[in-house]
């Protein structure tokens, strides 16, 4: 596959091999995420497919994207698809990622809904679902342990992680409030000081 001409990703690839992401590639990627997520666990699948398998984003980019997606209105995964699609291919990319994420699932769901409303069959879903949902919960938890990696040796980063977790899960503050309090503190701590600008940004 040779990419020539004025593909936006091509100019950058000389210094840092930016992944070449095509529109069909985006659609297929999010279709794969959607189809993998029977019973839930979309975020974990996104991490697995976008970060681990395709290496389109690194862990830090993924973590930031997840929280931005959650802070804005709309389903997290839809926002995540827009983020990834836009990041690589602008508006067409965002649309391609959305079509990939929603197209086939919508067709499946409407078929199931049609069968339900016309034949009044309650598919034997609930029992099966109880098992799948318990597994999806395990998958959601596994994602945190996979991403914790280098942070284990960074006490301040761990402190921020524990504070965020405790804020939401122990003290039951709302997510926007927790981010509003912790993000400025974290930004102050991680503010770039006296570093050379990244080489690849020279224009």
């Amino acid at each position: 596959m040779t990419v020539t001409g004025s593909a936006p990703g091509a100019a950058r690839s000389t210094q840092e091999s930016a992944p070449v992401v095509t529109l069909p590639g985006l659609a297929l990627c999010f279709l794969q995420i959607a189809l993998s997520s029977f019973g839930g666990g979309l975020s974990a699948w996104t991490q697995r497919i976008v970060v681990e398998r395709r290496r389109w984003l690194d862990n830090q980019q993924f973590l930031t994207a997840v929280t931005i997606s959650r802070l804005f209105p709309g389903p997290n995964q839809v926002n995540m698809a827009i983020f990834v699609g836009q990041h690589f291919r602008g508006l067409p990319g965002a649309v391609a990622a959305l079509v990939g994420l929603l197209g086939v699932p919508l067709a499946i769901l409407l078929t199931l809904g049609w069968a339900y409303f016309h034949y009044h069959t309650v598919p034997e879903l609930r029992a099966t679902l109880s098992g799948v949902v318990a597994a999806a919960a395990g998958m959601a938890l596994s994602m945190g342990f996979k991403l914790i990696g280098n942070y284990l040796t960074q006490p301040v980063a761990l402190l921020f992680a524990v504070a965020a977790f405790a804020g939401v899960s122990v003290f039951h503050f709302s997510l926007p409030l927790v981010v509003l309090v912790l993000a400025p503190l974290a930004m102050a701590w991680y503010w770039p000081r006296g570093e050379l600008p990244p080489a690849r940004e020279v224009h």
């Binding site: 973590l63 994602m143 945190g144 960074q154 992680a161 504070a163 981010v179 993000a183 991680y190 503010w191």
Partner: peptide, 23 residues
């Protein structure tokens, strides 16, 4: 840059929270 670096550990904690919520 600060937001991306700083939000990553915060997000990590929030991911654990989502897991616990699902459970």
């Amino acid at each position: 840059i600060a937001f991306e670096r700083g939000l990553a550990p915060v997000s990590l904690g929030l991911l654990f929270s989502s897991g616990v919520t699902v459970v």
